[in-house]
């Protein structure tokens, strides 16, 4: 078995909604190996998004430990989490979340802006990633001039530009037609073959089929974990 890239033990996350406490995660323990391709599944409210936010360093657990690539995330301060995200995590969202009125290259280069990479180097690396996802011809286009699939490719280039340890994709095909979805998933498959660790949140079984491992959440716990 390859060494664990992500290791979490007894992760809980409790939200306070007025007087009520919502237990989004109730003691989740798991390991994800380097180079793995994991689909996180489950109905809404199952805790899959919370788990995803946790390993994306967007949120901190209420209790439990979380270690990614040798770094403990559960005790980090907000700015340390931000730096970690910028360095180690690439995000792909359902709604793409590209900045309007900004070229594909500038969008893809955004994480480097906060990583202190000089301007020419930023453009060079962003362009290389756009080539990789097959958008070499449209680097000067604004999001409004791109199709949904093309926009998602820009988002993938943006997620890769920092050479992250994990690629986190939250319903990446949720806003795309099936043809385009398949193209995007093929990009993920290829990235995984090249060694990238990918974690994919989805509720579609066909999408989950692309992954090597499926983890199913229900009521804040892992109820199924198959490879």
């Amino acid at each position: 078995m390859s060494p664990a890239l992500i290791q979490c033990r007894d992760l809980t996350r409790v939200y306070k909604m007025g007087d009520n406490e919502v237990h989004a995660l109730r003691g989740v323990s798991t390991r994800i190996a380097k180079g793995d391709y994991v689909a996180i599944m489950g109905p809404s409210g199952s805790g899959k998004s919370t788990f995803m936010n946790m390993i994306g360093a967007l949120d901190r657990p209420t209790s439990g430990t979380l270690e990614i690539d040798g770094e403990r995330l559960d005790s980090m301060k907000p700015d340390e989490l931000a730096a970690f995200r910028g360095r180690r995590v690439g995000f792909v969202f359902q709604q793409f979340n590209l900045l309007p009125r900004t070229t594909a290259t500038q969008n893809a280069a955004l994480p480097l802006l906060y990583g202190g990479v000089p301007g020419q180097e930023r453009a060079r690396r962003a362009e290389a990633r756009l080539q990789q996802v097959g958008l070499g011809e449209r680097m000067d286009h604004h999001p409004a001039q791109l199709s949904g699939g093309q926009q998602q490719r820009v988002a993938i280039a943006r997620a890769l530009v920092n050479d992250p340890a994990i690629l986190l994709a939250d319903e990446p095909t949720g806003a795309l037609d099936s043809q385009t979805s398949e193209e995007i998933l093929q990009i993920f498959d290829q990235l995984n073959r090249d060694g990238m660790t990918i974690i994919l949140v989805t509720h579609e079984a066909e999408v989950a089929e692309h992954a090597k491992r499926q983890i199913v959440f229900r009521d804040g716990e892992i109820v199924e974990d198959r490879t």
Partner: peptide, 16 residues
């Protein structure tokens, strides 16, 4: 707000 969320997600610190 979403733009801010995105910037935070890709590594912007609060000061940024």
């Amino acid at each position: 707000t979403r733009e801010i969320g995105l910037r935070l997600a890709v590594g912007a610190k609060r000061a940024d």
